[in-house]
Design a protein around this nucleic acid. Structure first.
Lengths: 343, 343
DNA sequence: ACAATTAATGTACGCGTGTACATTATGGCA
DNA sequence: TGCCATAATGTACACGCGTACATTAATTGT
């Protein structure tokens, strides 16, 4: 592998000059520049990224931490796929590397270690929850003022970067849509409350009911874990309560799809027997039968935004030593009306 | 950030000893080992991955190259998502980093550069095609004996690592299934022929027809690009030919879903008017209406296998200098029968 | 024409680790 | 006890690059 020294020799300049030409630093004679580039080209030389990182003291990588459960094919879920796509877009356009980091959700993850070992310059945390150890781990990160951003999960730390969608409003819109159609007995199949976005959905659901003067009925609130299987499991409970339900709001499309499959197996006719509004507007939502009325969430955009803002923070920190501006984004959602909520 | 020197001082040993303890190299006194580990712990010391990579001359990263088209949310496709998940599994379990590399499919990608810049120790190429420049770029990689593996795309280079699925057989099985049900006028909506797996599907389709003594009819072969949109576009052509078609074999689920949507809009009743067998067995296949009969492809497993074999190659190369064993895997597919191919 | 700038380039070193080689401790054995 | 093999540790340097600082060349202003 050819290195800087050889290029310098061939071009008849010092190594420093080679470095400057390659990094475009300081004034230089055009003729020198050309000689160096010519020599580099002739020798097939390219900067060694590892050595460069080492000398700079930065890895040049943005890390994306995501929960990894063996046998669960995580990437296939719309949520993570879209977020990752958006992050990739931003990272790519800014010349950074994108390092995927898998964490075992059943044990505590030492985020700080990523920085100590200098594997990443910053990171984005996906699928984070409010579990106590997780909360502590994330707060520690913020306490140390390390550059990172949490996706779609609230924490009450003043220095914590967050990009999220407005799930409270999204849920409110969803339930209000049902109410507007005249349905009043509205159930809710939610995800686990350890995610703040689940709690936000609950808040939106309640607000809509309250506003319409509809009494809440705890027995019509069901809990799943955002998987299709859990939706299917909920089907028997929902089926049992069908006499008390006009409609149901479901925390994401996957659960809704599972629920629909389960209900149909139990002999239901949809949307006649039950109106459904789901959440995410994943690809699948448009081709279920009936197609899902669902809340579109700009996951791709959220990923892009988080990465972009984070990398901007990094660049700014090099220039000034002022504390970086906090990232606090809450993106709007949009109700997409299809057949599952009735005509 | 604390470094090796400080740990050495606190433990009262040389830096080399610290290094040996941390890497578990050579014989050492248990008491020394403990002193060093204790000191490291006390100082919150961890090996600097970048410096370590630099000294070793290896990045410690496996690269995954994937085509990146702005606005196309790549990760949402089952194909890439599953592959990536499998790769992640293997990489994670072997302590490597997983670097995502996006390439612009409209211009030539310099794979060799990844190695020259030492960004990766090996890489897996996804979504590769047989386009001439692409072929040359990949062959160059093989000529240089760089460690990499191509996914699901054949090249006729003797030193090229490939992990693929047996699409010829999978397609044969799919078409034979339709023939077995008594359908003889069978169309084919294929993906672009620049992918060898498209050509393999074509070969399987032909073999099944030939074996059944059915004359091929070129006018019943349609071409899409594996997107849902392209399937929908094909719907009008297929609809026009409906009088000459009993069934159609579709190159992947997404196109099949698009085709079904399009046909239904044109007033078709499925599966009555047309039997369909698709390909991939993505999540969506089970909840379309009717559910898709489709060919299951072990993408996750393919990804895991490719990464695992590649990293094994790397490890072996450190030990012996014998040329690494070629990776040539062709995994079996499996026909999953649902309603779309009739009862 | 000469000092004062500024441009252009060179010199020298640090970054934190891995590791070849040198050195010193330890224990076995005659 | 003395010798030797091996264990255990230390010394010293390379790895390729970025960059502070030093030096030399070119340009400007008067």
């Amino acid at each position: 592998m050819t290195n800087r020294k050889e290029v310098a020799k061939l071009a008849g300049v010092s190594e420093a000059t080679v470095s400057r030409v390659l990094n475009g630093i300081g004034p230089m004679k055009e003729s020198t520049r050309e000689r160096v580039l010519q020599a580099a080209k002739q020798l097939n030389y390219e900067l060694n990224a590892v050595a460069s990182s080492f000398a700079r003291g930065r890895s040049g990588n943005l890390g994306v931490v995501l929960p990894h459960v063996p046998k669960v094919h995580l990437f296939s879920t719309y949520y993570f796929s879209e977020l990752l796509g958006g992050i990739g877009e931003a990272v790519h356009s800014r010349g950074y590397g994108l390092l995927l980091l898998f964490r075992d959700p059943t044990s505590v993850y030492d985020y700080v270690s990523l920085y100590r070992t200098q594997r990443v310059d910053a990171c984005i945390i996906l699928g984070s929850s409010a579990a106590e150890e997780e909360k502590q781990a994330v707060h520690r990160l913020a306490d140390e003022r390390l550059p990172f951003c949490v996706m779609d999960q609230r924490f009450d730390h003043p220095l914590l970067n967050i990009v999220a969608a407005d799930h409270e409003q999204g849920s409110y819109d969803a339930v209000k849509h049902l109410i507007g159609k005249g349905y009043r007995r509205i159930g809710f199949l939610n995800g686990a409350p350890q995610y703040s976005n689940s709690r936000d959905r609950m808040a939106g659901y309640r607000r809509a009911l309250l506003e319409a003067g509809i009494a809440e009925d705890d027995t019509l609130v069901y809990e799943g874990n955002y998987s299709r299987t859990s939706g299917r499991r909920a089907a028997s409970l929902v089926h049992r309560d069908l006499g008390r339900l006009d409609a149901i709001f479901v925390g994401n499309d996957r659960m809704a799809i599972g629920l629909m499959q389960g209900l149909r197996e139990l002999g239901c006719s949809l949307p006649d027997d039950l109106k459904i509004v789901a959440y995410d507007d994943s690809d699948a939502a448009s081709f279920t039968e009936p197609p899902l009325t669902t809340v579109r969430v700009p996951f791709y955009e959220m990923g892009r935004l988080a990465a972009d803002r984070l990398l901007t923070q990094l660049a700014d920190k090099d220039k000034s030593d002022a504390p970086a501006a906090l990232i606090r984004e809450k993106l709007p959602t949009e109700l997409v009306i299809r057949k599952s909520s009735g005509n």
